[in-house]
């Protein structure tokens, strides 16, 4: 999420997650890393003002320790 916000997007939301690798014809590394398929959306800010506000809010979340959801982005 941090990467998405830092790139200038807001309203980031993961709407769906599912094991999409289980039962695939060949074994892979997905299971070892608890890999799920996800859908996510976000919106590009309207202007510089909205971007600055989003970055400021995000900085506050990070400094308050509320910006991590315990999940990691893929390698």
């Amino acid at each position: 999420m941090a990467t998405v916000v830092a790139a200038g997007f807001v309203d980031f939301e993961i709407t769906w997650r599912k094991d999409v690798f289980g039962g695939a014809p060949q074994a892979g590394s997905a299971e070892n890393f608890g890999t799920l398929g996800i859908n996510f959306r976000a919106r590009k800010t309207t202007d510089e003002e909205e971007l600055a506000a989003a970055l400021a809010a995000w900085s506050c979340e990070i400094s308050n320790g509320t910006g991590e959801d315990g999940e990691r982005e893929r390698v």
């Binding site: 998405v4 608890g34 799920l36 996800i38 859908n39 996510f40 959306r41 919106r43 590009k44 999940e71």
Partner: peptide
């Protein structure tokens, strides 16, 4: 401006 990002990808837990 206001463009949308609609992505299917993966999440590593």
């Amino acid at each position: 401006p206001n463009g949308r990002l609609q992505i299917g990808d993966i999440l590593v837990q």
